[in-house]
Design a protein around this nucleic acid. Structure first.
Lengths: 198, 198
DNA sequence: GTAAATCTAGGTCATGCGACCTAAGCTGTC
DNA sequence: GACAGCTTAGGTCGCATGACCTAGATTTAC
């Protein structure tokens, strides 16, 4: 086994971990090569040995981060009762909404990427691909419950934007989280069950 | 009439205009006192005379910006036909979704504020107040179509997060804008028309 | 007309940044 | 055990930033 590669990987991961913490706590411009060096206990030039430029680091971090989020999403199981009901969806929906309500680390980091992607084509591409993949994964998960592709497609195209937007607006909306989880579950269930084109 | 005040207001507005352009084009950290000075043709210290610190400028800009957005929203009229139908809502919904699809200047600037608000309590407060006011304005506009407060509240708590999230995910979703506008109009109409508690 | 306020300009300061360069130390190979 | 490639450290460079200071110009008030 190649020890060198292990060490290299370990250091790289250590740098990315520190970078992620900084992005979460200090934002885009709080993530500097020097702060990463400080946080990892490495010298600046050593960090720069593994990531030649800040942009390289930013891209590698985005790559790893989005991949991790997708893995987490893929691991999510949807409870399926014998008799399909909106309840099956509610649990899934609540997981997403809770993230947003608590402004989890994930939400904070995504806010940064949304802003960065506005001016960084590489990151923009990562973000776009990420959401496409989220849609694809959810599509696969919900397909067993869906009567038509059209209903499935609409249910997903409703849910993903809602969940992302919820993480921004949650605490300012009149209806509370449980109410909205139920509401959304009912709506999505209906979309998934639709038999004819409306 | 107080000429001094007029001049002061004019310069202040000029600075805020430049700051807004910078925030839109270059993001949070592209908005520097020096760049504002350059853009307005003023000296750095003159800009700093009107806004002592960068943070003051950022807060004043947010204040003006959100107020402007709300004014725009209040000016929006909802077409009401004799016979209420989802169509009445669709036009309104499309206005919001188009902003997101085209990643308008407004969307870009909001992305910055979402990120900034994560680490700046003053801006966070502006953002929260803004969305509360958006909810309140929409509530007033849609109330004539609503049968129950509960339905109204849920319709709004569905729409606002969706619209914000749509500006992020739009181009990655399987269903297109027109389809989703129709879908959302139907859903909101149903929520507004609901007679009994679900 | 003069004194006070408002406004404008120029300059300086310490700080932090990314990129780059050079020279060591380490490690595994032949 | 020598050599080559990978790894680490220290230092420097030019640049941009926000905050601050001082002084001069302009306007307003009395």
């Amino acid at each position: 086994m190649d020890i060198t590669l292990m060490v290299k990987t370990a250091k790289t991961e250590k740098i990315l971990d520190a970078a992620q913490q900084l992005l979460n706590a200090e934002g885009d411009y709080g993530l500097t090569m020097r702060q990463v060096a400080l946080k990892t206990g490495m010298s600046l030039s050593n960090v720069q040995y593994y990531f030649k430029t800040r942009d390289d680091l930013l891209k590698a971090l985005a790559d790893r981060y989005f991949a991790g989020c997708l893995e987490e999403l893929r691991a999510l199981e949807i409870a399926r009762s014998q008799d399909p009901s909106p309840r099956d969806l509610e649990t899934l929906i609540l997981i997403f909404l809770k993230h947003g309500w608590e402004l989890s680390e994930m939400c904070r980091i995504f806010r940064e990427y949304w802003a960065i992607s506005t001016r960084n084509p590489a990151i923009d591409s990562y973000v776009k691909d990420y959401y496409r993949e989220v849609a694809s994964v959810l599509e696969a998960k919900l397909r067993p419950m869906a009567s038509t592709d059209r209903g499935l497609s609409r249910a997903i195209s409703l849910f993903i934007p809602y969940a992302e937007g919820y993480s921004i607006t949650a605490t300012a909306m009149p209806a509370d989280m449980d109410t909205m989880a139920k509401t959304l579950a009912d709506i999505m269930f209906e979309l998934l069950q639709e038999q004819t084109q409306g």
